[in-house]
Design a protein around this nucleic acid. Structure first.
Lengths: 152, 152
DNA sequence: CCTATATACGATAGCCAGAGTCCGATATCA
DNA sequence: TGATATCGGACTCTGGCTATCGTATATAGG
């Protein structure tokens, strides 16, 4: 069903870390080592995650000693829909896909499947839902994600 | 991110098939063979899917010749959240889980992870979203899933 | 009773993506 | 020149999804 990649989770932790650090001093840079050590993550994984964030345009990198990463966009301007796209690739809710890349492969039962069209619509609805959530809400400790009454 | 199992898709097609069939005559039974043939699905897969639907309590089965399956609950009373739970198991949006079965295994970075709590909240929000969608909406051809302005 | 038709269900194998590891290349500062 | 970083490919390992096979059980009807 709906589940995040590890990379997505690590990426979120990294973005949160950098956001907090830069809120004090925007010029602060963060190394992969620092994040790996902070959260006890394997260094290689962390490095790969940050590289992905950089390739996605969310952070900036500087090579060499004293190098590291800096956050480019504030977290309240990155939606969960976009973040998932960047981290995990553009995916449809069904394997046969609705209108995303179905022409590439599609499913073998394509011709007789009668729910494909409808699933495409459902996929749109999910995307709209995820577009309404921003990383800032998730990165903050004291967020509520628009909860209404769940007390737990 | 968010994606359905094949079993979930097949199950949806089967429920839709039975729902339509029984809308004419509620006493109609449907065999696995019939569904497999109707949509060109492998018989074994279809049988397994129907068995799962039966174990989930969504449909009733009758053994023997003239046996088959009948829909137990109307599709507008089955939410997508429940259906996904039944077909794919109760899953959390993150591998470390929020409050579902984290005690079982959890993730190894548990102690230092600072987003777990927040992810649990996010998971709740997603579940509420999925609870607001019912299978009837998906099973019908002319549904709109509460879309606002998409003209297609 | 026998047979055709169904469901019930475990065992198994292939496949693929996710996750993690290893190793080396490149860039920059002191 | 050396220490510290990012960059990035190649590889393995694992687990879950998917599908297949074989067999047991239940029931209607002649």
């Amino acid at each position: 069903m709906i589940k995040f990649n590890r990379t997505t989770e690590y990426g979120l932790m990294a973005l949160r870390h950098m956001s907090r650090k830069q809120s004090t001093d925007p010029a602060e840079v963060t190394s992969a080592r620092e994040i790996a050590d902070s959260y006890g993550l394997p260094f290689e994984i962390t490095a790969k995650t940050l590289l992905r964030l950089k390739d996605s345009g969310l952070i900036h990198s500087a090579c060499g000693a004293k190098g590291g990463y800096t956050l480019l966009r504030p977290l309240d301007q990155i939606s969960l829909a976009e973040f998932l796209d960047l981290m995990e690739g553009h995916q449809s809710i069904v394997s046969c896909a609705g209108d995303i890349k179905q022409s590439a492969e599609g499913c073998q039962y394509d011709t007789r499947c009668e729910i494909k069209h409808v699933m495409g619509r459902l996929n749109e609805k999910v995307t709209r839902f995820l577009s309404g959530i921003h990383l800032a809400e998730i990165a903050h400790d004291s967020f509520n994600l628009g909860n209404k009454g769940s007390s737990t």
